[in-house]
């Protein structure tokens, strides 16, 4: 099975649907290491985003794995690791 890649643009799109946009900041490379909570996304926003990623990509993220991934970069890495594991 070909491995999909989960990108910052994918995260931005899903986060926007799940929890709305951050006020006054573009969700781009400049915030890839910012803490999601500092950007205005609380634990429920992360939970909802994780649920949508699971549905769209057909993966299962363990409870808490996204809560521990505190930045966009960390979330992308976690999701890509799951996609790689599935493709292997």
């Amino acid at each position: 099975m070909e491995q999909q890649e989960f990108t910052l643009a994918d995260l931005a799109r899903i986060l926007l649907d799940a929890a709305g946009a951050v006020e006054g900041a573009a969700f781009d490379e400049g915030i890839v290491d910012a803490e999601l909570e500092q950007l205005g996304y609380d634990s429920l926003a992360i939970l909802e985003t994780g649920s949508r990623i699971e549905r769209e990509y057909g993966i299962t993220l363990d409870d808490g794995v996204l809560v521990d991934a505190r930045t966009p970069r960390a979330v992308i890495e976690v999701v890509n690791a799951h996609l790689a594991a599935r493709a292997a």
């Binding site: 929890a19 709305g20 006020e23």
Partner: peptide, 8 residues
């Protein structure tokens, strides 16, 4: 309203 408040 701010976008963040709409989905919730």
């Amino acid at each position: 309203l701010p976008s963040r408040l709409i989905p919730q």
